[in-house]
Every structure is written in C-alpha cells, then in structure tokens.
Design a protein around this nucleic acid. Sequence first.
DNA 1: CGTAGTGTTGAGTAAGATCAACTGGTGTGG
DNA 2: CCACACCAGTTGATCTTACTCAACACTACG
Lengths: 255, 255
Amino acid sequence: MLSPTEGDSNHVADRNHIMLTQRLERHGMMSQAARTVLRNIPMTLRSLEGGSYIVREADAPALCAILVSGFAYRQKVTGEGERQILAVCIPGEVVDLQNLYLDLADHSVQMLTNGEVLAFPREALQIAAAKEAAIARAIMIEAQLDASILREWLTNIGQRSAKARLAHLLCEFAVRLSASSPAEEEAYELPMNQEHLGDALGLTAVHVNRMLRALHDEGLVLWTRKSVRMTDWRKLRVAGDFNSRYLHLDQIPKP
Amino acid sequence: MLSPTEGDSNHVADRNHIMLTQRLERHGMMSQAARTVLRNIPMTLRSLEGGSYIVREADAPALCAILVSGFAYRQKVTGEGERQILAVCIPGEVVDLQNLYLDLADHSVQMLTNGEVLAFPREALQIAAAKEAAIARAIMIEAQLDASILREWLTNIGQRSAKARLAHLLCEFAVRLSASSPAEEEAYELPMNQEHLGDALGLTAVHVNRMLRALHDEGLVLWTRKSVRMTDWRKLRVAGDFNSRYLHLDQIPKP
DNA sequence: CGTAGTGTTGAGTAAGATCAACTGGTGTGG
DNA sequence: CCACACCAGTTGATCTTACTCAACACTACG
C-alpha cells in the first residue's frame, strides 16, 4: 500500500546508498570494498503515511529500513490492550536492526508522521555484514546505542516520578534532535500527542497534561501543539535527572 | 580483589574455551577456523563473591565475561539514588556484550550470589568478531535476544499492574531457567530477595511482599525463602499476561 | 544469645488513574 | 459561509493503587 516510489534511476539509487553508507560510517570509515558491498544492496524508497506499519509484532520481518524523513516509533501491546512505546525513531536512524537476526518480530514499528523510508531486504544486510567486518561492527554499535537508550527508559519509568519522567524524555529528545540536526537546542518539533507521551512514559494522557502544566508553571518549558520550547534547560535537566552519558555522544561524530 | 583462580593448565583452559564456543554456537555451527580464533582468546576463571562488581557504570570496560556459575544482575542508579535492575543473568550467559563496542559503561553488572566468571579482554572478542563473521553473527544474536527481554521488561513495568508484573517476572525466570537447565518447570531457585524484586519491577519491597501473598492466596505460587514453586503454572501465566514469544525460544536449540 | 538481614503486617498517605464534562481548533459537507 | 463533527487538550471530582512509616517476627549466623 501507500504509493511506493521506486528509486530506480541510477542517480536516485546512489543518493539512497550514500545515506546508508554515511549512517554506518559514523562509527569508523569503511574500506572501498565495504562500500561496494553496501552499494549492491537493493533499496527502495517508500513514502508512508502516519500510522502505517513498517514492522508488525509476531510477523517474520523480511525488510529493514532507514528512516529518511518523518518520525516513527516502536511499540508493544499487552494482552490487556495497553500500548507501551519503546522508542521514538528520528530521521537517519535504521529502524529495524532489532529484528535483523530474530525470526519473529517481538514488537511493531509504526510511522508517527508521514515520511519516507528506505527499505531493503533484511537478508541483504545480513550477507553484507558477513562479508565485511566493518559493516557488522557498525550494526552492532548502532544496536548497542539503541539498547542503551532502552535501559535508560526502563530506569526512567521504573524509578522516577511522573514529572521527572516527562522532563527526562523532553531532555532526551532535545539532545538527540540537536545531535542529528544542527543546533537550536532550546526548541524543537515533536509530533507526539499527549496520548503518545503517556504510552511512552507509562502514564495516562491526563496525567501527562497535568505534569506538562506543572513544568510550564515552573517556567521550564513552553508547550504549543506539537512543538516544545525549553525555557530553562538547566532546571529541566535537574527536574528530569538527566545525564546524557547513556546516549554515548562522544562516540558519535558531530554531523 | 577476590581470589582470581588462574585457569592456566591446558586442560582447564580448554574447558573454558569450550564453554565460550558452545555458547556462541547456539546460533549456528562455527567453522574450524572460527573455533580456533575463539580458542586463542586468553581467558581467566575468577571466583566472585555475591555483591562484587563485574562492570561499573561510567567505567571504561576492559573485560568481557561469561557467567559460569551463580547469578548476576545489571543495574542502573538514578541521581536520587534509586536502583533499577535491568536484567538478571543466569549461568552460561555472556554478561557484558552490551558494552562490547561502547566506550563507557552506562550501567553496572554485579554478582547476585557467589559464583565464577570467565573473563577475557573485550578487545580480543572484538578482534575475533572482525576475523570471523560467524562470531560476529553469534554476538549480534545474543545481544538482540537480550534487547528483546529488555523491551518486554519495559512493557511490563510501564503497562501492567503490580501483581501482573510480578507474575510475569516469575514466569520469565521459570522459562529461562528451565531452558538453561533440564526440566523441572514448576519449581526453581531464585536468589533474589524482595528488595531485588522490587527494584526489578519498579515497586517497593513491601508491595512485592503483598503481591506475593496475593499470588499465594490465589494458589498460584509457593514462596519459600529463595525458591519459587509454581502451583498453577497456567493461571500464573494468565495473571502475568505472559507469552514467551519475546524469548525467541524456537531460535535457541534445546540444551 | 544477641544481632543483622529479611520477611510480614497494619495504618495512614500520596501519586496517579478514572470518569466525565467542557474547550477550542480544524476540517468537511451542505 | 455556516453548521456540525471530530480530535486533542484541559480541568475537576473521586477513587485506587501503591508508597511510607513503623512495629514486630523469623531465621541465620557469629
């Protein structure tokens, strides 16, 4: 479904491959051989609408994808029908490494907004990793960075108060977004509604609303529709007990 | 500290390497070349007391380790001093893959009981992975299985009631322990006190106690000191909304 | 036999959930 | 252009879950 725009001209195909190569080269230059291997992975650019699925829980995932534009999120649903948001993916991230070697997806990935995704066969990346150690290495680092964020989320939900959780999440997004797109650390677009925030934080949307108000009343943030402005970054960091170590920023070259 | 027992005789060293090889071969046979690479990793068997650290948060990890005997757990501490237990490691598991490529540990690993650990330089495993694709592949699968459990824990803490969380955790241990040691699915030793359980579940020890009592009163479990007996496995699974898919058991050969 | 670590229980409290009503934008069709 | 519906956000009142504090019991261990 959803207007797959084939990237079949050589020119466009190259731009696609450059995206993949650059992403994986964040953690060390690739040899020419490795680049060639990456360049031979068949890729397709797809436009997806907000809400559409990239991976479905319990499916056997056949594709991997890089998020070119727009936002996505991983999620899991309990038997009671409650949704837990596990991660929010920002443009540039490989959306699916989690399932690269697992035969059944244990969670879903869904678009948060309209956006584009660069899809390629999971098997092709597996083969590439087997052929070139530098590729395998880059994949492992990417996966470990992701797992580190997951650990922090677990700690956030398990141990911090509702207000601190929310502040922490807002800090994380600020840092991750400013690391991916140049500067403007004190304001950003966040296409999540309060329902989403609640499901990410283990809170109800109503309570998210109240905590947002509390942060606002203390002069820490301004919240307008889907954008966030941090009016006091330092206090917000304290309120959220935020320390960016878990993002391992010093291991990622600045864009 | 803590009486490092050098495994320097050839005989013992071989037994150590067999352990590593077998673990990594769970996900596909290794070539003779790969086995040789693994065999050349220098390893040391260490006895550790309960409570001693294997990795410390914010340290640069230099060693990796396989847990030979005893239990360990990963943990993270917030600025407020609250501890979140992120995972419990059972014998046979590689305890440290999470930090294999990250330069600063974002969490600690601590022994839960007395036990033995097979330690080797992190760099040696990195080099082995670079040399032999099958090793890299096995490491990635191990890491992804771990991440899958982490996702389930996040969902558990974020979305389920205290009683369900506890039941879920007890189910998980039952399955993981029975998968690692032959059978006896309805009872197992669990060397965690109620404080540990609380920190793993985002609950207080007092509340864990009450929920344990509730499960007991409903005839689902018997709890004696540090062992657990499931008196009604089916009901416990329902109470904990437990589905073992996230453990990806069909991808792991039976022991 | 005393002390320390766990587990157990009760009473009171607080954080967050639930339910329900209402607001204000943003379409969308008549 | 207005009427209507719809969705996200907002607010209040009430309820429930889980926390806090405190006392006491039971082993285990020196």
